[in-house]
């Protein structure tokens, strides 16, 4: 059995984590280590296993096999003391709708020793939430802000966000992010964010993981990732022919007459251009462009789909 590392450095950890539903693996042999103080973005297409992973980490569902922990406590045996240090915001999370926000705050207050009244007032002002309105009468945006509010005001050490910005208008999204940033300023806060809104995540995250078909395909710091991935455009001479095989780090290669485009996932400012000249014949011009996290994500996912044929790639429709 794979054991979890015993270190205080890690806020979140998973080893050989598996979740199987009937005949389908939702999460498969997932290893994950998130350091304290890190903001980690878990990206992946729909159905990749992001939410399942988060739920296993939060102790909401039990893994089929493997182990995971948050703040050193196994997720399958979390007690109240750990949940006092964890915030969880999910797009689908239900709220006690019959309550007003004031009632909810009053109700929650005793359970969080770190409840910060000043921070609460600050967030209430920023979010512009009505205290006397029933939660069921609130708009989607207000409800999401409420979820942020009640997950931030006790300064959790770890915040787990599952699609927190989905379907929110830009203003509310900004407000939520501002709240997150305020929270992250104090102490050694750790966040795990699963989202499709990569631009937003990019502003926050310092590490990123890409999960696909239940497998963690990439796990890296954002800066490092952005540093090593470049969009490459190469112009070759007219008579040149491409070699039969290209380096594995060149992803999503496309050719159009004399132009070749690909993503170099092992970019090295000192060596990459030399490598291109060595492999491709008649190179006339090479351009390297940095990529946004979103572009890297799309490129990697598309490439991966091409390689494994996609989730349903083996199905052929006659």
């Amino acid at each position: 059995m794979t054991k979890l590392a015993e270190t205080d450095q890690l806020a979140i950890e998973a080893r050989a984590l598996n979740k199987r539903y009937k005949d389908q693996d939702a999460v498969s042999d997932l290893d994950l280590s998130i350091n304290r103080g890190s903001i980690y973005a878990l990206l992946g297409p729909n159905g990749a296993g992001k939410t399942t992973t988060l739920k296993m980490l939060m102790g909401i569902i039990a893994p089929t096999s493997g182990q995971c922990s948050v703040l050193g406590q196994s997720s399958t045996r979390m007690d109240s003391s750990v949940y006092q240090k964890i915030g969880y915001v999910s797009e689908n999370q239900k709220l006690p709708d019959w309550m007003t926000l004031e009632q909810l705050l009053r109700f929650l207050r005793p359970y969080y020793p770190n409840w910060d009244k000043d921070f609460l007032n600050k967030l209430l002002t920023e979010y512009d939430l009505p205290l006397d309105k029933k939660l069921k009468a609130m708009s989607r945006g207000m409800r999401m802000k409420t979820k942020f509010l009640i997950s931030l005001i006790y300064y959790p050490d770890v915040l787990v966000l599952d699609e927190p910005f989905s379907g929110l208008d830009p203003v509310i999204r900004e407000e939520c992010i501002d709240g997150l940033l305020d929270w992250s300023q104090v102490g050694n806060r750790t966040a795990l964010i699963s989202s499709h809104d990569i631009e937003d995540v990019e502003r926050l995250a310092d590490s990123v993981g890409i999960i696909e078909a239940g497998k963690l395909e990439l796990d890296e710091e954002v800066d490092s990732l952005k540093e090593r991935v470049r969009r490459v455009s190469v112009v070759i001479s007219e008579n040149a022919t491409l070699p039969p095989s290209l380096p594995s780090g060149w992803k999503n290669t496309r050719t159009n007459l004399r132009n070749i485009e690909f993503f170099d996932t092992h970019f090295d400012p000192d060596k990459s251009e030399q490598l291109i000249h060595a492999i491709l014949p008649g190179v006339e011009r090479v351009t390297f462009e940095p990529m946004s996290l979103r572009e890297i994500y799309v490129a990697l996912v598309k490439q991966n789909k091409k390689e494994i044929g996609g989730k349903y790639g083996s199905q052929i429709h006659n």
Binding site: M58, G59, I60, Q93, P96
Partner: peptide, 17 residues
Amino acid sequence: SDNLNDDEAFWVTRPAR
């Protein structure tokens, strides 16, 4: 209302066990 059954329930990740 406190939906003990639902994995999206409000209380599942709160200190209340």
